[in-house]
Design a protein around this nucleic acid. Structure first.
Length: 441
DNA sequence: TATTCATCTCCTGGGATAGG
DNA sequence: CCTATCCCAGGAGATGAATA
């Protein structure tokens, strides 16, 4: 098609309309940003509540009333349950929620709540598109070894919009979520079931793969569909609206987490081209479009970044990430060294759990840290013996506490190592320039 | 602007349950 | 054991946003 001449009536007003659309999306993100923590907290609390309820209702007899977090539930028992047991199965754990008067299948509700929590966590920690999230498989969780021997967990995102796969380093939180999903699927010692997934865009089913977001609905094992996630988020936001007025007019969609992720990254000082690599954008303008929410901040960061780069390489603005920049990004991990090993939280994000390294999930999952734990234990035992000789009672108590945590950590590490991809025969990868660089066109 | 893709919405079907 | 009903996930078309 021939290009339209400037001033053509057909394109007049197009720029204005684009700006209005952009303003609407920015406003959407601004509205949701302060609500994110509430939503995340609610999802987590809801899962914890149902998990505890399942634990207690499972052992309760029919008619027994269970009180949990101020809510009363009556354990139900029906003829169907007896029939299921007679047929060699297990009864459904159902309760009557005495507050709402509704029947709840606790086992199903707990399972749903787990995956609801997990998908929200994955979306907000990775900023990936909903389809990419649902396409994550066991094989997407990889590791690669830095030249210094350190292992970094990576998430391989299959392409959905562009045709290039991308690899993003996993934060401690993200890895613990992935491990929780894998652990849930493999808790009875079986591998993650291989399932085909229907792709609504391609209109065809994929080959059978160990999808992470799959669950049992009735007798069917199915991969969770995008519509399910949308509906789930709407239901949860509606529930929250009863207590939190902010949710009365605001509902989250999966894509909102992506906008929030992009905004947070850039506001935390991550160079925009690395942000683009993490988000899988081919064009920096796209990333800028996502994050130009807090305008002054972003413009400031962006100008500063462009300015620095102009000084060193005046004529080459939209270039690939250089080896040096990428190493700098990687070296950031080295700056996060703590007593017991390495903390691989994302670039530019502060740790909210200061002095809690022993309980940090990232520290537990790296089996390479085990010999180091042994060394530390020896050291602690020696210090304890001395403290005891000198009758420093407070010190002995403190060391005992640390020792207990350390042993718990070791046990956890061994347990996780059995299910973590590290030991599942998944090959390590060295990312090639093709998989780790920003492409600017 | 053209094209691709995300989201919404409505319909269908299957599982769970209660009651006969 | 059968059937009615409810609930919810999945499928697919429609609509509009995102992207190149």
């Amino acid at each position: 098609m021939a290009p339209c001449p400037a001033g053509d009536a057909e394109v007049r007003g197009f720029g204005v309309r684009k700006r209005r659309v952009k303003e609407r999306m920015d406003d959407r993100t601004r509205q949701r940003q302060p609500l994110l923590d509430t939503l995340v907290g609610y999802m987590e609390a809801r899962y914890e509540h149902l998990r505890a309820l399942l634990e207690r209702a499972d052992t309760a007899g029919g008619g027994e009333v269970i009180t949990l977090d101020g809510r009363a539930y009556e354990r139900l028992w029906s003829r169907v349950d007896e029939r299921r047991i007679r047929l060699g199965g297990k009864e459904n754990v159902r309760v009557l929620d005495q507050t709402s008067g509704k029947h709840v299948n606790v086992a199903a509700a707990e399972d749903a709540a787990f995956f609801e929590w997990a998908i929200v966590e994955v979306l907000r920690h990775t900023g990936i598109r909903i389809e990419e999230a649902l396409e994550l498989t066991h094989l997407s969780v990889r590791q690669y070894q830095r030249p210094n021997g350190e292992i970094i967990a990576l998430l391989v995102i299959a392409p959905s919009k562009s045709d290039r796969e991308r690899v993003i380093p996993m934060s401690a939180e993200l890895f613990s979520i992935a491990a929780a999903i894998i652990r849930r699927h493999t808790q009875d010692g079986r591998a993650i079931p291989l399932l085909p997934r229907y792709d609504p865009h391609e209109r065809q089913a994929s080959p059978a793969m160990p999808y992470l977001f799959q669950r049992e609905i009735g007798t069917n094992q199915d991969v969770i569909s995008p519509a399910t996630v949308v509906n789930m988020l709407r239901r949860r936001c509606e529930e929250l609206a009863e207590r939190h007025p902010g949710f009365l007019t605001t509902c989250f969609t999966p894509h909102d987490f992506r906008r929030l992720f992009a905004t947070e990254l850039v506001n935390n000082g991550l160079p925009i081209h690395i942000g683009a690599a993490l988000l899988g954008h081919l064009n920096l303008e796209t990333t800028r479009g996502y994050v130009a929410v807090f305008n002054e901040d972003v413009v400031h960061h962006y100008q500063e970044f462009i300015g620095r780069r102009r000084n060193s390489r005046p004529s080459d603005e939209y270039r690939d990430v250089t080896e040096q920049e990428w190493s700098e990004f990687e070296e950031h991990f080295d700056k996060r060294k703590v007593g017991l090993g390495g903390c691989t939280r994302p670039y530019g994000t502060p740790c909210r759990h200061e002095h809690s390294c022993l309980r940090c999930p990232m520290l537990a999952i790296n089996p390479k840290m085990l010999p180091r734990l042994d060394e530390i234990e020896e050291d602690l035992l020696a210090r304890r013996a001395r403290a005891e000789r000198e009758s420093w009672l407070g010190e002995v108590e403190g060391i005992d506490l640390t020792l207990a945590l350390l042993r718990q950590k070791r046990e956890e590490t061994n347990r996780l190592a059995r299910i973590a991809p590290v030991n599942l025969g998944i090959p390590s990868i060295q990312p090639t320039p093709a998989t780790r660089r920003v492409r600017s066109t």
